[in-house]
């Protein structure tokens, strides 16, 4: 496949009278880590939701692997998200009644992978992310740092083409967050997964290969002028 893996072109989203996103274009190549920076309410999460096929933009189009996805049915977009995308939310959002291992195996089970293989792959990834010793713990009893590492494992266990991470360390102290982020980016790179990292922090964005800034729903070109 030539061209970008994921691309949004001229995206616009309005909530009532309010324009949340206005004429934003952003593309992501295979294996690339890109940060979308911006302050609260800037539109960066709306951009992520459009690119991930969660939200259908009012204007513009989104394509994945050369195929338009914004005009597909909810069901097809849902299937695409399950197979090709991974998500790391800010607060982990694990199923509290399940163990950490069961949480990570869940995407594989939904993809009809057998229980034994799913559990084996989930356990190996938990070991890689240094939370293997807590695998049998209920998610509701795990620490914040463990929950985010497990959320990273769950997002990557099916080797997705793209991982979407929305403020993935925002709920952690800075030191724990830094280690979780290192693990997320390194593990994604090992698997060849691209990462779209939404953050308001420069130190988080510095993990990415490049960054864009969203301000008031538009890409902020002043934030990155041509130097020299």
């Amino acid at each position: 496949m030539s061209g970008p893996l994921l691309a949004g072109l001229g995206l616009g989203v309005s909530f009532g009278e309010t324009a949340a996103l206005e004429d934003v274009s952003l593309s992501l190549s295979a294996g690339e880590v890109v940060a979308v920076m911006g302050t609260s309410g800037s539109g960066k999460s709306t951009l992520l939701h459009c690119l991930a096929g969660v939200l259908v933009p009012d204007r513009g189009e989104v394509s994945f692997a050369g195929e338009r996805i914004d005009n597909q049915s909810d069901r097809r977009r849902s299937d695409l998200r399950l197979r090709s995308f991974g998500f790391v939310p800010q607060f982990g959002d694990l199923v509290p009644e399940l163990t950490l291992l069961e949480n990570v195996a869940l995407p594989l089970r939904l993809l009809q992978v057998g229980r034994r293989e799913a559990t084996g792959r989930a356990a190996a990834l938990l070991d890689e992310l240094e939370v293997g010793s807590a695998a049998s713990r209920r998610a509701g009893a795990a620490s914040g740092g463990q929950v985010q590492r497990v959320a990273v494992a769950r997002a990557l266990v099916h080797c997705p083409s793209v991982v979407f991470a929305d403020e993935p360390t925002g709920a952690l102290d800075s030191a724990t967050g830094e280690l979780v982020l290192e693990a997320l980016v390194a593990t994604a790179r090992d698997r060849g997964s691209a990462v779209l990292l939404v953050t308001h922090e420069a130190v988080v964005a510095s993990h990415a290969d490049r960054e864009v800034v969203v301000r008031d729903g538009r890409l902020d070109l002043l934030a990155f002028p041509t130097v020299g």
């Binding site: 420069a202 130190v203 510095s206 002043l222 934030a223 002028p225 130097v227």
Partner: peptide
């Protein structure tokens, strides 16, 4: 002044990435 800051930000982020 905002342009001074914006240009510095680019260089700082690039250095941060290099150091990392």
């Amino acid at each position: 002044a905002d342009e001074v800051l914006a240009r510095q930000r680019v260089v700082h982020l690039e250095r941060m990435r290099e150091v990392r």
